[in-house]
């Protein structure tokens, strides 16, 4: 039975990275991801890989666990690698029939594959070490300047956390309705796509009705507990910067500086 939804799978451990303020982790991850687009040199990638390994080591997430995030993009990775390998113009090294492998193609394949891999790994380090609740709280605080433009930041964060609570419940409910309808002779398997979609109706309809009823109940329960929007709300676990958060900021800047120096002064 599915009882917990984890976005990008949270890995439970005690580490400095886990204890970092979620805002630092979100901003740090963004900076890291953007930094990957700023250079075209192998030395830069070496620096980025070293930094990733350093953070991974600190986070105590096993290496094998962290690379799981690559699984869903594996096919895409192979595909882009092939495209770049065979369709880049330049100095021809090898010819197989109509296909040419060029020197530039090999470099480009390596760059782009590494960039994709590091993008995914960098993002997954954040989701592996931050609980969904912390992520939501961090986003709410980071986006709060948008409130000036009347963006419903608090409401969106509240919706996200409610979704986190109710997705497993609705998945369970889907299974229950599915079994109930199958017991009455519903067929969700056979036929072409159109027929399958049509057969989904007896599943989707009761699910929607139930979701709306739940939403209604929850709204009433929130009302009863004095919920009146984000105004004047306090938190049990407010976010505040600690010593390690400031250290983390410095380490991020050090990384950027080191990256600049390697790319600037190393030949490749």
């Amino acid at each position: 039975m599915i009882r917990d939804i984890t976005i990008g799978q949270y890995y439970t451990a005690e580490s400095v990275i886990h204890r970092l303020d979620p805002r630092i982790k979100i901003v740090g991850t963004l900076i890291y991801m953007i930094s990957l687009f700023l250079f075209h040199k192998m030395s830069g990638y070496a620096a980025a890989i070293l930094f990733f390994l350093f953070v991974l080591f600190l986070s105590r997430v096993p290496f094998s666990f962290s690379v799981r995030g690559l699984r869903p993009i594996f096919l895409m990775l192979i595909f882009t690698a092939f495209l770049n390998l065979f369709w880049t113009e330049g100095e021809v090294l090898l010819r197989i029939g109509a296909l040419e492998i060029t020197k530039e193609g090999i470099w480009k394949m390596a760059y782009i594959s590494l960039r994709l891999i590091l993008l995914i790994l960098g993002a997954s380090i954040m989701t592996l070490t931050t609980t969904p609740n912390d992520l939501t709280a961090g986003m709410e605080r980071l986006l709060s300047p948008l409130k000036i433009f009347h963006a419903p930041v608090h409401e969106i964060a509240m919706m996200m956390s409610i979704a986190l609570r109710f997705i497993p419940i609705l998945i369970e409910e889907t299974n229950r309705i599915m079994k109930a309808q199958m017991a009455r002779g519903a067929d969700f398997e056979s036929g072409n796509i159109l027929r399958k979609l049509k057969n989904m109706l007896p599943l989707v309809l009761p699910l929607f009705v139930s979701a709306l009823r739940r939403a209604n109940d929850l709204a009433q329960a929130m009302d009863a507990r004095c919920y009146h929007g984000g105004k004047g709300r306090t938190r049990m676990y407010p976010l505040y910067f600690k010593g390690i958060d400031i250290v983390a900021c410095f380490i991020c800047m050090l990384y950027l500086a080191a990256l600049y120096l390697t790319v600037r002064f190393l030949p490749i």
Partner: peptide, 10 residues
């Protein structure tokens, strides 16, 4: 309904 009145997942 016990499910429909709890807001947080902790």
């Amino acid at each position: 309904n016990p499910d429909n009145q709890l807001v947080s997942n902790v």
